[in-house]
Design a protein around this nucleic acid. Structure first.
Length: 558
RNA sequence: GCUCCCGUAGCUCAGUCUGGAUAGAGCAACAGACUUCUAAUAUUGUGCUUUGUAAAGGGAGAAAUCUGUGGGUCGCAGGUUCAAAUCCUGUCGGGGGCACCA
């Protein structure tokens, strides 16, 4: 339809592409479906924009595609033929189905690294944000034509592991290893606390770290392997629950050696230097400070491993683009890493993209697995599920398995949506009471609107193949249709700007419009039943697609 | 100290990239919402255990919803522009980062 508007303005002697960009969708429907602002022309022609608008409106030839074209102030507003627009949109949605909204905006092989949950530490509510964001971005990238490799880079080695093993050996040796995240998290927190109190213990930890890195102590190796597995298994369960999964698991332990090699090479090339016995790269010239790669005892730090990892990603997986979804507290760090890659003339140094997201904080402060100041994912999930169970029981009687499945779906939708709807740059202050709300702009509201649409279709024994005729399109129907039409554009924006929040907010708006529609327009038994059913069907398809992009599966009944 | 991010209704946020029509949602507050079933009770007519109407309360339908009202110096001060929540500069407030954590 937009193209028809462009065509009707072709007499203006403005480039087609430019014209297309200038045409906008008015905020308010009373201004029509498309609007052409005349400010640009006004500047070019040095004429009053209001007069230009009037002039243009008078010159446009009306055909059956438009109901009317009028000048309002400096705008030329186009009102398209509602019936034509509506049948176009409905037919397109029904033809493209699950693919509606997708596009060929890219064709790269992209590795998206996200979640990065470490072993031997708590998986807390804060981790959900990055995990949900990464999964959603992966889906958006795929939807837009790319091939995506989901990668999880997990810290299964390093100082935090040494601390955990130290604490276990020193204070908990008699306890059996438990497949229990809370227990694992607790020992880590205890280690941190003990080390803060007695700094002389750090030497013992350092020794364990060296031994782990050299892999020479058999009992330590064994303990590391076992506890690592416990952690990974419990993480796997969580990922499954959160509707995500990884094609590739990268581990810090796999890139340690290569990291040291690279650093040795960089010292020879004088890109890196030894300072105070540690291996560093000085980036002060670029306003990026100094980055330490190897400790003075020669063990490798995160930075050293990350350089090796970047190399591995491109060389082993032959990717075109590498995306890092990591908390924004590491912004400086990633700029340092990317700069170092550039200095060492790494072939693919320009193809790394950092997608930062802000923290999830508690009202009392930062959420941290180090201090234990956090809410464990598993605890929180249980609370939301319990709450969902109560809400369902208020309404229906269900078998207990069905009840739990639905409650879990609702809980996950609630949790993930609350993380995704917000701009990644903004801090989320986690308020449990608010997180337990299922009304308004929440995941359950979206699930509900989908379920309601299905229930209408079910009640009418709706069949997709049935033909429909549109006699007229009222205001509510049109508002819904024009929003349905915008979905592909929303997806494209979301893809370009790397923000699922656009899709999330669109989904909410769409659900609102749908509620508005069915409240005012009875579907079953109405004169235009076939058409309205078709519209309900289109809605259910589009909201399903939108929720899919967010990594939230729909359920047929609430 | 240097640097990055955030500041929009009482609270939580969208809109800022790409400047345009009266700055939008949700929550909280207040007021309200269709159809149908049941029906304490009231009432109309008949004239004696029955009819019509209205109706507190309860249930069901597509209500985890919808409608309305109130609520704004877009942190503040300058600047650019025909036009600024949006761009620039400064400033205040909050958060993050800045050498051996990840």
């Amino acid at each position: 339809m937009k193209k028809r508007v462009v065509k009707s303005l072709s007499f203006l002697k403005v480039d087609g592409k430019e014209l297309e960009n200038l045409i906008e969708t008015p905020k308010d429907q009373s201004f029509g479906d498309y609007a052409f602002p005349t400010f640009v022309l006004a500047k070019r022609l040095k004429k009053n924009p209001n007069e230009i608008a009037k002039d243009i409106a008078g010159k446009i030839k009306l055909d059956k595609n438009f109901e009317k074209v009028e000048a309002v102030g400096p705008y030329v507003n186009f009102f398209v033929n509602k019936i034509k627009l509506t049948s176009e949109v409905i037919n397109r949605v029904s033809k493209e189905g699950n693919k509606y909204g997708s596009g060929k905006h890219g064709k790269d092989k992209v590795m998206i690294e996200f979640s990065q949950a470490n072993t031997h530490k708590a998986f807390h509510v804060g981790h959900i944000r990055g995990t949900s964001l990464g999964e959603s971005l992966s889906r958006i990238f795929e939807f837009c034509g790319n091939k995506v490799i989901r990668a999880n880079y997990q810290g299964d080695t390093g100082m935090h592991v040494a601390k955990w093993i130290w604490c276990y050996n020193k204070y908990h040796k008699k306890e059996k290893l438990r497949k229990d995240e809370a227990w694992i998290a607790k020992i880590y927190v205890e280690a941190i606390k003990k080390l803060i109190k007695n700094s002389e213990f750090q030497e013992e930890v350092d020794e364990i770290n060296r031994k782990l890195e050299s892999k020479k102590d058999k009992s330590l190796n064994y303990l590391w392997k076992e506890t690592r597995k416990l952690s990974l298994d419990s993480l796997e369960r969580i990922y499954h629950e959160l509707n995500t999964g990884f094609d590739v698991h990268l581990f810090e332990s796999e890139v340690e050696e290569r990291g040291k090699e690279i650093m040795a090479g960089l010292v020879k090339k004088k890109i890196a230097e030894i300072s105070d016995n540690a291996t560093i790269v000085n980036l002060e010239k670029y306003g990026l400070g100094i980055l330490v790669f190897l400790r003075k005892d020669g063990t490798v730090l995160y930075a050293g491993k990350d350089i090796a990892l970047a190399e591995k990603k491109f060389n082993k997986f032959k990717i075109d683009k590498s995306i890092y979804v990591v908390g924004d507290d590491q912004k400086l760090y990633f700029n340092q890493i990317f700069k170092t890659l550039e200095l060492m003339k790494f072939k693919h140094s320009g193809k790394n993209i950092y997608v930062p997201f802000n923290l999830v904080r508690l009202p009392t402060g930062k959420m941290s697995s180090r201090t234990g100041e956090n809410i464990l994912y598993s605890d929180f999930k249980k609370e939301v599920v319990d709450y969902a169970v109560k809400e369902i029981e208020k309404r229906y009687k269900l078998e207990s398995i069905e009840l739990y499945d639905r409650s879990l779906a609702i809980a996950i939708a609630s949790i993930k949506y609350s993380m995704l709807k917000q701009d990644p740059d903004k801090v989320i202050i986690f308020d449990k009471k608010k997180a337990l709300r299922f009304e308004g702009n929440t995941g359950p509201y979206l699930l509900y609107s989908y379920a309601r649409a299905l229930s209408i279709l079910g009640k009418a024994s709706y069949k997709k193949q049935k033909k429909f005729k549109i006699k007229e399109v009222n205001e509510y129907e049109k508002r819904l249709v024009s929003l349905l039409a915008q979905f592909p554009e929303v997806v494209r924006h979301s893809y370009i700007n790397l923000t699922p929040s656009l899709v999330a907010n669109y989904a909410y708006q769409l659900a609102q419009r749908f509620s508005e529609f069915y409240h005012n327009c009875p579907v079953i038994g109405s004169e235009q039943e076939q058409f309205r059913l078709k519209l309900v069907d289109s809605f259910s398809q589009v909201i399903k697609n939108a929720l899919w992009l967010l990594g939230i599966p729909v359920i047929p009944e609430m």
